[in-house]
């Protein structure tokens, strides 16, 4: 009698849940997460800033359409051959060659997103795959992959790219993105590995094994959906580090010379000796790099709170 009662209680709970949600569980989970996210002030600020940067990136196509002198890299104001302060024609002024700083800044936003998101996405794909394989396979494979991760973890990515550009000459922006991705996966793979290890103990993995699913199928069908939220969280942190590395590289003069990134703009200010004379030129790119990093970081922290029930408990009791 007792057991039956407990069972029926659970069943009624389930019905209750279904009724009150009445939507697919994924959407419901997303809504619940979003509700928590919205309470987070930093998360909101971060998201707002990111939207602004995204708009900047979208707007980067407009100035060159208005006048070819607004081409960020090649467009030069025919009347100006040196750096000038903000004016009606050039809202943020011009650089040492008479190029429009605002256009460069907008183009820089596009490059930052491109570099950040693609490098982060690649490193997350690599890190998640390796982490899942290491955690699921265990033993020899695990040891080997994790030692590899340790090794790459101690490599200073910026200096590695420097050495590679010494050997292979100027690096194309996509090669830079690829190198960043190849060197920034170990952190992710460790986290995913730990998560996989704990998932492996769960009955549904055991059940899939008994049902004869292949390793690949278990990893990608059963484990991956469960680690993806975590992987996504880490992606936001990887975006920041990719943007920083690319900017630093460009700042040192090893960026892709055919792209205008914020780091490149800073290098121009610095190398042409304008840093004491042209604050209108020095400030915007630095502020943009710092702010975009900050906003991805805040986004990540807010998402962390959504994903980590422990922090929520803290909010409840404290």
């Amino acid at each position: 009698m007792g057991r039956f009662e407990i069972g029926s209680y659970e069943m009624s709970m389930e019905k209750l849940n279904k009724k009150s949600l009445n939507r697919s569980p994924r959407i419901a989970r997303f809504r619940a997460g979003w509700a928590i996210y919205r309470q987070n002030l930093l998360g909101k600020i971060g998201l707002t800033l990111l939207v602004i940067f995204a708009l900047m990136a979208l707007c980067s196509f407009i100035p060159p359409l208005i006048d070819p002198m607004y081409q960020p890299m090649t467009g030069v104001d025919p009347d100006i051959a040196k750096s000038t302060g903000p004016s009606l024609r050039h809202w943020l002024g011009t650089d040492f060659m008479g190029r429009d700083i605002l256009s460069q800044l907008l183009a820089g936003a596009r490059v930052a997103f491109m570099v950040g998101v693609s490098a982060a996405f690649m490193s997350i794909v690599i890190g998640t795959t390796i982490g899942m394989i290491a955690g699921y396979m265990g033993k020899f494979v695990d040891t080997l992959l994790m030692r590899l991760a340790d090794m790459i973890m101690v490599m200073p990515t910026l200096l590695v790219v420097l050495i590679l550009s010494a050997l292979f000459g100027q690096l194309n922006i996509w090669i830079i993105v690829l190198i960043i991705a190849l060197f920034r996966w170990p952190g992710v793979s460790r986290v995913i590995r730990a998560q996989t290890l704990s998932l492996k103990q769960r009955p549904f993995i055991e059940a899939a094994k008994v049902a004869g699913a292949s390793h690949m199928r278990i990893i990608f069908r059963h484990i991956m959906p469960n680690v993806l939220p975590l992987a996504f969280l880490y992606m936001t942190f990887r975006v920041t580090s990719a943007i920083i590395i690319e900017a630093a590289l460009a700042f040192l003069g090893f960026g892709d010379p055919s792209t205008v990134s914020w780091g490149m703009m800073l290098q121009w200010v610095w190398k042409t000796g304008h840093m004491f004379k042209a604050p209108y030129w020095l400030l915007p790119p630095g502020i943009c790099i710092s702010l975009i990093t900050l906003s991805f970081y805040m986004l990540g922290r807010a998402m962390d709170e959504v994903l980590d029930p422990r922090l929520r408990k803290e909010a409840e009791t404290g």
Binding site: L42, T240, I244, A247, A248, F251, G263, L266, V269, W270, M275, F276, P279, L282, P285, G286, I287, I289, S290, T293, L294, Y297, M298, G318
Partner: peptide
């Protein structure tokens, strides 16, 4: 935790942690 001291410190830490290093250096020099 939760007081003004905490909020200010957390915000300050977030900002200094994410500011672009070469730029910070240039600003300090300037």
């Amino acid at each position: 935790k939760g007081e003004t001291t905490d909020t200010l410190m957390t915000l300050g830490a977030l900002v200094t942690h994410t500011v672009f290093l070469p730029w910070l250096g240039l600003i300090l020099i300037w």
